[in-house]
Design a protein around this nucleic acid. Sequence first.
DNA 1: ACCGTTTCTTGTTCTGCATCAAGCTTAATC
DNA 2: GATTAAGCTTGATGCAGAACAAGAAACGGT
Lengths: 197, 197
Amino acid sequence: MESALDVLFTHIGQKIQLLESDKAALSDFFKLRALKRRQYLLQEGDLCKYLSFIIDGLLKSFTIDDKGNEHISLLAWEGWWISDFESFVKQTQAKLYIEAVEPTTVLMLSKDNYELLLEQFPIMERYFRILYQNSLTRKDSRLISSNTHSAEEKFKLFMETYPTLHQRVPQNLIASYLGLTAETVSRLKKKRFDQDS
Amino acid sequence: MESALDVLFTHIGQKIQLLESDKAALSDFFKLRALKRRQYLLQEGDLCKYLSFIIDGLLKSFTIDDKGNEHISLLAWEGWWISDFESFVKQTQAKLYIEAVEPTTVLMLSKDNYELLLEQFPIMERYFRILYQNSLTRKDSRLISSNTHSAEEKFKLFMETYPTLHQRVPQNLIASYLGLTAETVSRLKKKRFDQDS
DNA sequence: ACCGTTTCTTGTTCTGCATCAAGCTTAATC
DNA sequence: GATTAAGCTTGATGCAGAACAAGAAACGGT
């Protein structure tokens, strides 16, 4: 069976050319961790010490506002990275919580190892440059959608972009991800279904 | 006086170590362009062929919705890069307009030259990795603010983040950047001022 | 298989901000 | 420096989606 590191290297190999010798050397930089459902990977106020690559499972990152409401900033599953990126990069207090929605395994890369890895493997500069490049285009789209679309348009766009995700993620999390309430999404769903039939 | 390329290299030099020989070689990759007030650097439907580094002046990127309303996705001035990044990276049709708010000069890097430059100067992989890394943390913050804050909080945060920008940029552009109407921002400004005095 | 918790639905009320309108002020442009 | 356009203010009205409420359905853990 495929090891966690193989999953990671396959992923990296889709963006850059990775030598077998590199793989062996890179392995030591990562640490495997298993999370149970509802377990936290990070809590607000912590230092975000790791970039985490998701081998299997699904995580959410979110803030909690003054009224105690949760606002999801990211839903991430196998093949994606997650962190409180600002906290990780600047080594400041985290603003985000990261919590497992499903039982999850991740490969963690510490800040120190991240810097080392970039020093020692220039090809990884390229990998992360491409990774961030793609991430930026998605964030741009999301920001535009967030500022210009109605609730209905946001929901529709989400369902088109991630057509199968609603089978894995409770509707209230999708609502939160879109900056809507669970009630609103429930009504939008009903509306869509009524129209389709 | 300082040339446009010097401005760029100073900026790059803040993130990575750039050799004089590199500078000379890199110069050929960039093309200088001057824009008048209200002139477009990009229009919706175009291919975004360039990353543009702003030497002087100020630009806005925005979408126009079905009702003809403008939604600003970015305000950028000297020392920042601007593009329709998704269109640039994937070479798809641009969704954005980019227009000069002030008379502006930019150094433009074409997609081809971008790829060449990354091939030939591995140090530039590092530069762009760091650039994108920082850009991502800002986008994250903005996305969170957009989904969790009230109009008043967004406006307050904007004024704290860019305390002098309102002297350069008309209020209606700030409103659009924040996903608000000009009227709302006008009222918020009044409210702030009344409270402060 | 059961029980408790989480998630979803549906109705009602409320409110923050948009929209519409119109006069005023400031700033570009010739 | 006159003219025209751009930007700002203030008031009135409307509405999308939040908030509140409460029951129903689905799910997960033991």
